[in-house]
């Protein structure tokens, strides 16, 4: 059994090594995209069971975003929802014989955490501008700037480590048990992996939503600032 910490290169495209997790991710992308295309190409007002289930998923994601961010979910739905769907199915690839979840490797989790870090910046700048994003570090006071800056890095690392640790440990435990015990013994642990994979996907998506919501809300001008600026506008130049 290979160490889950090691990456196995399948082939190279020029100088770029294509690892097993990248290939599996490509397979996942193709399968998810094809299934979604197949399901959503014929939508109707009277939905089939599958369409109704997918619409329920969308409504659930929207509800979660709306409750967490207190905002309309449309700008965030694709990012948060895709994170959840990808991590969920990536975690569940552990059920495929011979396949190792991409999320069991630190590069995939780091890439996901990096995307969350960039998404926080993107959505905050888009909502409040660059100054608003920078102002979010000074919330609630200027003394908190170093701590907030460190927190913005560490929380991303916490995301990375949480997902990687849970999924990698699950795969590791199943591998150890499989190597020590019989063929059917790891099945309860694999079932537990399913649960863990779902929970971790949900936690990752919810935390990403919380980080984006926190930065977006903290970057907004305070109520007193708003009042001052509106008074200036009403008075006009004299």
């Amino acid at each position: 059994m290979n160490s889950p910490l090691a990456t196995q290169t399948l082939f190279h495209i020029g100088p770029v090594p294509i690892t097993e997790q990248v290939a599996l991710t490509w397979v996942l992308m193709v399968v998810l995209s094809a299934c979604c295309w197949a399901v959503t190409r014929r939508m109707s007002l009277t939905p089939s069971r599958l369409q109704a289930f997918l619409e329920l998923v969308v409504e659930t994601v929207d509800g979660q975003i709306r409750e967490t961010m207190q905002a309309e979910p449309a700008p965030y739905r694709a990012f948060i929802g895709t994170l959840f769907v990808f991590i969920l199915f990536a975690n569940w690839t552990s059920l495929v014989p011979g396949a190792e979840p991409p999320t069991a490797h630190v590069e995939t989790d780091a890439a996901l955490a990096l995307l969350v870090f960039l998404a926080v910046i993107h959505f905050s700048v888009r909502a409040n501008g660059v100054s608003g994003y920078l102002r979010s570090f000074a919330s609630p006071s200027l003394l908190m700037v170093p701590l907030n800056f460190v927190e913005s890095i560490t929380r991303i690392f916490s995301l990375l480590v949480r997902l990687f640790g849970n999924v990698m440990s699950g795969v590791f435990v199943v591998g150890i048990v499989l190597s020590l015990a019989g063929f059917l013994v790891p099945i309860p642990l694999m079932a537990l992996d399913l649960l863990t994979g779902g929970v971790q996907a949900y936690i990752f998506a919810v935390l990403a939503t919380v980080f984006i919501a926190g930065t977006v809300s903290e970057g907004r001008p305070a109520a007193s600032d708003n009042a001052a600026s509106s008074n200036e506008t009403e008075r006009g130049p004299q």
Partner: peptide
Amino acid sequence: DWWTLAIQAINVLILIWLLARFLWRPLEAS
């Protein structure tokens, strides 16, 4: 493996675009 990290980031970005096109928008429209 930084190459893998970068490729996975790009893959997820592409997947976000693909699912936005084939899943989220059609369902939202529906």
